[in-house]
Amino acid sequence: MTAVLQTALILLVLLQVKHLFADYFLQSKRMLAGRGEYLHLGRAQHAGLHAVLSVVALLLVGAPLPFTLVLCAAEGILHYHIDWAKGRHADKTNHGPADATYWRAFGVDQLLHQLTYVGMIWAWAIYAV
């Protein structure tokens, strides 16, 4: 296995652990409230937390700081909009955990976040290695 592939897998693990903490352990009530509103301080804080923790992950694998800051700013913007779309959908449908459509939206949300990480690793491999 090449060093680049090993580092990519380490980065993937770091981003997965980051996602676990930012999405499930570190969300405040403000971050969870009003998810369907477009301009929402809590969602901005949540997306910012994701971006900051991604900076840490990328720096741990030796990515250059300017590249890391640009990539993580893009991730924060994407994360904000992915979560807003899920919140808007939840507000429009008024579905909760007892409804299958809630879990479909949750699954699509998580898939989009995971695809964001694939894109970030891809960008790292092209521009930072």
Results as ranks from 00 to 15, higher is better:
residue 116 T to Q: 00
residue 117 Y to K: 01
residue 119 G to W: 14
residue 99 D to M: 08
residue 101 T to C: 09
residue 122 W to K: 03
residue 99 D to R: 04
residue 94 N to A: 13
residue 96 G to H: 08
residue 122 W to V: 04
residue 119 G to V: 06
residue 126 I to P: 04
residue 114 Q to N: 02
residue 104 R to W: 14
residue 93 T to E: 15
residue 126 I to W: 15
residue 98 A to T: 03
residue 90 A to C: 05
residue 121 I to Y: 04
residue 92 K to Y: 13
residue 118 V to F: 04
residue 105 A to V: 00
residue 102 Y to S: 06
residue 127 Y to E: 06
residue 90 A to P: 08
residue 98 A to D: 13
residue 105 A to C: 05
residue 125 A to N: 08
residue 115 L to C: 02
residue 98 A to I: 01
residue 127 Y to S: 11
residue 124 W to L: 01
residue 97 P to T: 01
residue 121 I to F: 07
residue 100 A to M: 09
residue 105 A to S: 13
residue 91 D to M: 04
residue 90 A to W: 09
residue 105 A to R: 01
residue 100 A to N: 14
residue 111 L to N: 12
residue 107 G to E: 13
residue 92 K to W: 14
residue 118 V to D: 12
residue 111 L to F: 12
residue 92 K to H: 13
residue 91 D to G: 06
residue 112 L to I: 04
residue 116 T to L: 04
residue 92 K to D: 15
residue 125 A to D: 02
residue 126 I to K: 09
residue 89 H to E: 07
residue 103 W to A: 11
residue 105 A to F: 12
residue 112 L to V: 05
residue 113 H to D: 09
residue 102 Y to M: 10
residue 98 A to G: 05
residue 114 Q to E: 02
residue 119 G to P: 09
residue 107 G to Y: 07
residue 107 G to C: 04
residue 124 W to C: 00
residue 117 Y to H: 11
residue 90 A to K: 06
residue 126 I to L: 15
residue 109 D to T: 07
residue 94 N to R: 10
residue 108 V to C: 02
residue 110 Q to L: 05
residue 103 W to K: 01
residue 117 Y to P: 02
residue 94 N to L: 02
residue 121 I to N: 05
residue 93 T to Y: 08
residue 105 A to D: 14
residue 97 P to S: 13
residue 127 Y to N: 09
residue 106 F to V: 02
residue 104 R to Y: 14
residue 108 V to W: 14
residue 127 Y to I: 08
residue 120 M to R: 04
residue 121 I to C: 03
residue 114 Q to A: 05
residue 110 Q to M: 04
residue 98 A to S: 02
residue 123 A to Y: 02
residue 100 A to D: 11
residue 103 W to G: 09
residue 89 H to S: 11
residue 101 T to A: 11
residue 117 Y to C: 07
residue 123 A to Q: 07
residue 115 L to N: 03
residue 97 P to K: 04
residue 96 G to S: 14
residue 109 D to F: 06
residue 126 I to V: 14
residue 95 H to W: 09
residue 97 P to L: 00
residue 123 A to I: 06
residue 104 R to T: 13
residue 101 T to G: 02
residue 106 F to Q: 10
residue 95 H to T: 03
residue 98 A to H: 10
residue 117 Y to I: 08
residue 93 T to A: 00
residue 107 G to N: 15
residue 99 D to T: 01
residue 106 F to E: 12
